[in-house]
Write a protein that binds this DNA or RNA. Structure first.
Lengths: 131, 131
DNA sequence: TTCTGTGCAAATCTTTTGCATGGCA
DNA sequence: TGCCATGCAAAAGATTTGCACAGAA
């Protein structure tokens, strides 16, 4: 990828050096957090403000130019039990336990052997889907 | 589940009414956030402090009495691309894109039809495993 | 009685907002 | 030129820490 300007022109956002720098940074690292973006951009662009990163990340997300991963839900806790996956509703935040299926366990084990894995599926739960 | 006292006695933590209340709350709702626990317990236990919840959740986690879900990583961002899953290292936080496998897509679709899903696998990445 | 746990208040982060100024189209 | 974007500073929110007192064993 190189034409960050196009990405912005296809959205409702004006092209600014700050936005180009953010997109370049994301493209370079693949994935980055606000703080990482800020620290890296600051070197080339010392006057940039952290608030600008926050505002732009939010705008770029609204325009679907970028997407958020490690979705920011409040951490939740549960009493220790046997391994299972979690389904988390992106709308209401509800968490459901999901049994690991044979097939899926095997496939995961093949790809990522020897490490206890946690599996999260984010989607829309059946109640929220009705609305 | 009912014997929360046993859970505590098997750990290195003393039994206190606050801890029993937290475990009861988690058991009742299955999963809960700090704030949810606090709000609910406060009704029965008006003098409890939010700091106590934080400290106890952290202690209970260290003793493996409870576990944390929706793992609290800083949100990260990526430029929009075709659907894929993410592997996230629990040690170093690194994110890797993972292609959706046929098998897994089908199985997920069967269980959670009609909703765009995001899939996260948390584990230990190969670099961290070496150490 | 001893030592850990609790509750308050303050400190520290993280994220959001308001507002005056600057810069893109 | 007209707006939208930026940067600063302040506000709001979330989490952690220190310390004196209370309570479990």
């Amino acid at each position: 990828m190189k034409n960050y300007k196009n990405l912005l022109e296809q959205s409702n956002l004006k092209t600014t050096p700050q936005r180009l720098a953010i997109l370049k940074e994301l493209d370079k690292h693949g994935h980055a957090s606000i703080e990482e973006i800020y620290e890296n951009i600051k070197e080339m662009f010392p006057s940039i403000s952290l608030a600008t990163i926050y505002k732009n990340i939010s705008a770029l997300k609204d325009e679907n130019v970028i997407s958020e991963i490690c979705l920011h839900q409040k951490p939740k806790f549960e009493i220790q039990k046997e391994p299972h996956a979690h389904f988390i509703c992106k709308k209401c935040g509800k968490v459901e336990d999901v049994p690991f299926s044979e097939m899926m366990s095997k496939e995961l084990e093949k790809k990522y052997p020897d490490s206890k894995k946690e599996l999260y599926i984010y989607g829309i739960c059946s109640e929220c889907k009705k609305k």
